[in-house]
Computed example of a mutant assay.
Amino acid sequence: MLTKQNAHRVTMVRRKDDPTSAPVPFRWRGDRRIGIGCFNHLIGEGDEARIIKLHEFGEWEVAEVSHPGYLESFWNAACGAHSWSSQNPDIIGEDEITMYERELHEDLQTMPEERREQYLTNYKSHLSGVWASESRVASAFVTGPAKFNYRRNEKAENAYRNKYEAFRQWRERALKAVERYKESLKTDEQRAEELWTKVLADIDSTVETIHSLDMGKERGYSRAIFVSNLFGRIATHAKNGNVEIVDRAVARIREWNAKCSKPIITERHSFFKLPDVARSVRQKAEETAGRENREVAFEGGKVVWNYEADRLQILFDAMPSEEMRSKLKMRAFKWSPRFQAWQRQLTDNAVDAARQVLNLQKL
């Protein structure tokens, strides 16, 4: 049956005394002509739409809803949360039930089925705690100023604020955890295709701007900067050994070159050498994959050839002096919290730099 508690999510209703009749649209708060904070609801559509009063709800049954009534059992808690702080606790409670149910429904649609029940349980638990805490917050406007315990109320307000912030922080962490879980379920092919979709959109957007500049449709921008930025973004994929993305990017530019009177990027540009760079990086990674790290000890620490990470790392037994840290920075070593080491890319120059910093004869 259509009720005050479920009306906010109802979209279609039918006559209760005629269950075979066609459903008609229901618009919750479809009319606001009766005052601030007060609403009428509409039934029907077009010129035939009319106001339906609360006492008429019992004559109609629900035919369609926008989402399940996740928080319907919390109706009294939501309204009671504002009984000491508002002269219209029912309206504010109804607003919050509506807002949180929509948010919860949107959250649940983004996550795998196996994660929904636990998320729903935790969401309800956190929200009920927020409302319970808020119900202890009073307003002198409602209770009257006589002997109003401001200090006690201030503590209640702080407790409510902490509960609310904890709830929103939990939701943010939970949604991030769901995204990580969804990412873990993807195959390598899915991840590669999603990445290419983003790269393709970026390429096309940049190329359209360059083409507009060439045609005189855009002015005031440097064509060379757009080309350079595009080259840099694809070069990053090449340095990561992402051969497939680089190959497809180069092919896409050649497609654009064939369509445009002026090439977007000429064949003489280093852009077209990026596939070779990507293959060289991948080959090097394959050669070093599984290769056992090499270590050389020195007084107070050790130097590690980390082939998998492609880094030369210096690990100290204790924090090095400020002078030593300055020397390391001057020779391009950076601190890695992940490895708890000072490191730079694994090259012959890096080995020479480590030898000089540590004052070692040879490594």
Rank of each mutant, 00 (worst) to 15 (best):
Q87T: 15
W131A: 10
E286A: 11
T3G: 03
K262C: 06
E154N: 14
Y181I: 02
A354H: 06
D17P: 04
C79P: 01
M1Y: 08
T347N: 01
P23I: 08
I210Y: 06
T121P: 00
I51T: 14
L108A: 11
S336W: 01
D17I: 10
R116I: 02
P275T: 08
G216Q: 13
F26A: 04
S86H: 05
L108H: 10
S228Y: 13
R282S: 08
G35N: 08
N229W: 04
T347W: 01
V250F: 08
R219C: 03
H237R: 12
G93T: 10
D310Y: 12
D276N: 07
S125G: 09
Y70S: 09
T187F: 03
F226L: 13
R223W: 03
G129H: 11
R50E: 15
E134N: 10
A289T: 08
E194V: 05
K329L: 00
E48P: 03
R152T: 10
S212R: 15
S66H: 07
R325S: 01
A159R: 12
F333W: 00
A289N: 08
I265L: 09
S21R: 10
Q5D: 11
C79K: 14
A251N: 14
N242G: 04
N122M: 12
G93F: 03
L363T: 04
I36Q: 13
Q169R: 12
V142G: 02
A156P: 04
W28M: 04
E179K: 15
H237D: 11
A174G: 04
G144L: 05
A353Y: 00
P112C: 04
H126R: 14
S212P: 02
F167C: 03
V357F: 00
W131T: 09
I51V: 15
E244Q: 13
M99C: 13
R268K: 15
C79R: 13
N88F: 14
E189C: 01
I265Y: 02
M12N: 09
D107S: 13
F231Q: 09
R311G: 02
A238M: 09
R152Y: 06
K259E: 13
Y123D: 05
S212Y: 10
G35C: 07
R152S: 12
R294S: 11
P337E: 04
G241T: 07
P275K: 12
E157K: 14
A224V: 07
S270E: 14
R171Q: 15
S128H: 11
M99E: 13
E96P: 01
V24N: 06
E299S: 14
V246A: 07
R29A: 11
K329N: 00
P89L: 02
S133G: 15
D247W: 06
W131M: 13
Y221S: 05
A166C: 05
T266P: 05
V250H: 11
H8A: 15
F316A: 03
D31I: 04
Q313S: 14
E64P: 07
M99D: 12
L195K: 09
L328M: 02
L328P: 01
G80S: 05
S336I: 00
E218P: 00
A353L: 01
R136S: 07
H237F: 13
K147E: 14
E292F: 03
N257F: 12
F39T: 06
